[in-house]
Amino acid sequence: MTGRARLLLPVLVLAGLAAAPFLGFDTGFAYTLMARAMILGMAALSLSLLVGGAGLVSLGQAAMLGIGAYAVAALDHAGVTNALVVFPAAALLAGLFALVTGAVSLRTSGVHFIMITLAFGQMAFFTASSLSALGGDDGYTLYGRTEWMGTRLLEDRAAFHFILLALLAGTWLLLSALIDSRFGRVLRASRENALRAQAVGFSPFPYRLVAYTVAGAISGLAGALLANATEFVSPATLAWGRSGELLFMVILGGVGQLYGAILGALAIVLLEEWLSHLLNYWRLAFGPLLILSVLFLRNGLAGITAPPRRRRAPPKAAAPKAATLEARADA
């Protein structure tokens, strides 16, 4: 696709994150904030693959995040802290959950899909709440961060920062490649016109299921990192509000561009931080901002800085709703 200019913004943002520690943003507070933004950015990227790439609006992505986080807690509880075990286990477990729930959810479409993913998210939430060995509702505090080759590498703030940055950039590159690949082409075609994809011989289901599983695994990895960043895990990680927040990151950044998720995550983490310092009841301002951005910022932040790649089809037809034949009558 066209234009290296489109890549300027995300590269600048990543470069900014890389430079930040050298520009005075090396306090514990700054590191914490950036870590949060980068980790949620990874999860938002994976959700963007679903929403922007496959047209699947999932309202249960926090479950995958939470499963990754709880994998760290459970292994910690069992005395396993080796990164080579913990992180793959987190990604695998979340991917497996996505595979199983996706197989059910993807039988439906449109608003049914939204509600089912929400319901599965709640299922995971209640399960986490009932894990009394891991603190139940109160959550679980890790003994320490995950170890790398026997060292406490992740406890070094700068090292953790650059590991997160590398993973964020890697996720972005990986998912960009995925969207542009043969696989991604089938996903995109199925989003825009599932009937057309079927007519040439593709049934969208297996492609969507793979995308859903990949997104789940990436979110699981992000969850494991989140547990490490906060050294604490609680059911709040899986709360459905978190899923809504991730969706907001994707939309605020711009659905049409994968990297929009990174912009969105950064913007929202900073905005939340700023507002919560400013106001006692900061959601009183955050909520209306969310509503306004949905109503008026149709192409997201990426849409402000870069001209839209192409004119979008009418909103309802391009939407991930179960498109009817009528909706496709573009004659």
């Binding site: 696709m1 490649a177 995925l178 542009d180 690949s181 043969r182 696989f183 991604g184 082409r185 089938v186 075609a189 057309r196 994809a197 040439v200 011989g201 593709f202 492609y207 793979v210």
Partner: peptide, 21 residues
């Protein structure tokens, strides 16, 4: 649009990394 149809009959579409275009 047409390449999508060609793709359907030439090998697996579970290929994830090479840009299709």
């Amino acid at each position: 649009n047409v390449a999508l149809a060609v793709q359907a009959r030439s090998g697996s579409s579970f290929r994830f990394f090479r840009p299709a275009h």
